[in-house]
Nucleic acid binder design. Structure first.
Lengths: 245, 245
DNA sequence: AGATCAACGTAACATGCTGTAACAAAAGGC
DNA sequence: GCCTTTTGTTACAGCATGTTACGTTGATCT
């Protein structure tokens, strides 16, 4: 394989050049870009093996851009973000990103991830499916990221709705961390237009209630999906994560 | 693994340099920092394996800083404190600290703890889980840190409210030590926004009363939750502590 | 001992937050 | 288009927590 070419997309010039230089020094050809148009230009003018995409691109939303790019072309994309709050956003829905890395990052880790994704991309025939797939285990339960399904422990028989599953995913991605209703709502709405700063009613409460009813042994005394009074909710359960190829 | 890099955060220059030198002499790369901004700067500019964080950073609250950092990045954090009174603060709520050490410390112990935490961090995939879990036993009672629940001795049947449980945790962390109402309130509110210097009414008294009613055999003559007249309250009961992996 | 006064215990009330049933709206399925 | 399922809204009841008020306790002084 020839020298890998990657596109560094960030609106902060400092970070952009920092990243570009870092990858250049590590044997990549790294091209800087700041806007969606520039990205498209690069994609048209030459081969790009991977895109490093900032989640916050000025007032643009990296997630949206990713979704658009993905529809048009199969480029591996790795998200980069400064805020862990964004992390939930990513956990909430697969947008087609191949991986996700939080700033500030460990350079070695970053390199490793980039290489891993490119490896994977080379093996995978159709890239359309590529995205981070993770399976979570908690209690006797399993969330199967591959099928996006929840499997109950033994005898149980449940089927979660789409939204319930999404909520569960957000919780699983943030175990033991109290999440406010707003944070949860934001994570759930990644799939949407991305502009819903409006105050939402009690939708989250009801959703939580319904999920409890389905996954808690005794919904009246929730063991996993606990409420953090005055704050929001916590998933108080250890979760084992499994990354899949 | 390469040389471990750790960040020493303290506003007292003397302690800062003392610690930095100590760790340098023991084969670490130790970087000093005094403010939250400096911490962030370091995190951005390079790999940091562990943070030693003073509980009192001038008028800032180390606990708050820890909570903020934790939300953004998974760095192991060890708290350092001069006052045992601060201990309550830590017991009040798990903020995500990996360990807690009281000044003045035994250098060997400090080294051991630092190494232990770094070991643990390396094994743990997602650091988001890491937090100190402790189980307390007193009288026939048990506080189960894993579930954050209180179990009554035999036949008894009680369920403590969240706040009552929190109060109990504060007391259990400081057996035989008289705590003022302010200290208790501070410890209870670690979870909150952190800015409540206002004088609080008799809330603590009432809370203590309710807890007594639930856990004392004869609430009128409390054996464990004694009042220290003119001071506050004492938990006059031997407590066995169990650390969990 | 008795008087005095501050500290404490607690019942009763006030407030705010949460759980949830019941209804309404929206999204699919056929 | 009609029916079913999912999702959001609203309203209300229940609970957790804080506040107030008042009676009691205990320390101190004379």
């Amino acid at each position: 394989m020839s020298i890998p070419r990657l596109l560094v997309v960030d609106d902060d010039p400092e970070i952009r050049s920092m990243l570009t230089q870092f990858f250049q020094q590590n044997g990549f050809i790294a091209l800087p870009a700041a806007t969606e148009d520039q990205v498209r230009a690069h994609l048209k003018s030459g081969r790009i093996d991977l895109i490093l995409l900032d989640v916050m691109l000025g007032d643009e939303n990296g997630v949206e851009i990713c979704a658009r790019l993905r529809r048009e072309q199969d480029v591996p994309i790795i998200f980069v973000s400064a805020l862990s709050a964004d992390h939930q956003r990513m956990a909430g829905y697969e947008v087609g990103a191949d991986d996700y890395i939080a700033k500030p990052f460990n350079p070695q880790l970053l390199l490793a991830r980039v290489r891993a994704v490119m490896q994977r991309a080379r093996r995978t025939p159709s890239l359309a499916y590529r995205r981070r797939i993770r399976t979570f285990r908690f209690g006797g339960w399993v969330y199967d990221g591959k099928r996006d399904e929840v499997h109950a422990p033994d005898g149980y028989q449940v089927s979660l709705s789409q939204r319930e599953t999404a909520l569960l995913k957000v919780l699983l991605a943030n175990p033991h961390i109290p999440l406010t209703r707003d944070e949860i709502a934001a994570a759930l709405d990644v799939t949407g237009s991305g502009d819903k700063p409006e105050a939402q009613g009690r939708a989250i409460d009801v959703l939580v209630g319904r999920l409890r009813f389905k996954i808690e042994a005794n919904p009246k005394e929730p063991q996993m999906l606990r409420t953090a009074r005055g704050v929001g909710y916590v998933f108080a359960c250890d979760v084992a994560v499994e990354d899949e190829a």
